[in-house]
Amino acid sequence: MLLVPCPYCGDRDETEFAYGGQAHVPYPADPDALDDAAWGAYLFVRDNPKGAFAERWVHSAGCRRWFNVVRDTATHRVQASYRIGEPAP
């Protein structure tokens, strides 16, 4: 079980959180400007790296706030966590 560093509450067990997939995939400013392929990529295509991965988590059973985590997908080591709107380290 991961130990997830909530930027608001501190380290908490993974079971308090829900996972939100890849971070920094913003809703397109003008969806109509995208063709079907580009819109489909926004909807369905995500990175799947072995190594550092910026991903979204929400502290569902705690402060209920969303934030971002950089986690190594091979070792599960959490390298950073930061608030929404802050740049990825």
């Binding site: 829900a18 939100g20 913003p26 809703y27 929400v58 209920r64 706030r65 969303w66 929404i84 709107g85």
Partner: peptide, 13 residues
């Protein structure tokens, strides 16, 4: 409610 919060916090703060 989670859906609302997700959009409010992550896209439209």
């Amino acid at each position: 409610l989670d859906w609302f919060e997700e959009w409010l916090q992550t896209e439209w703060p």
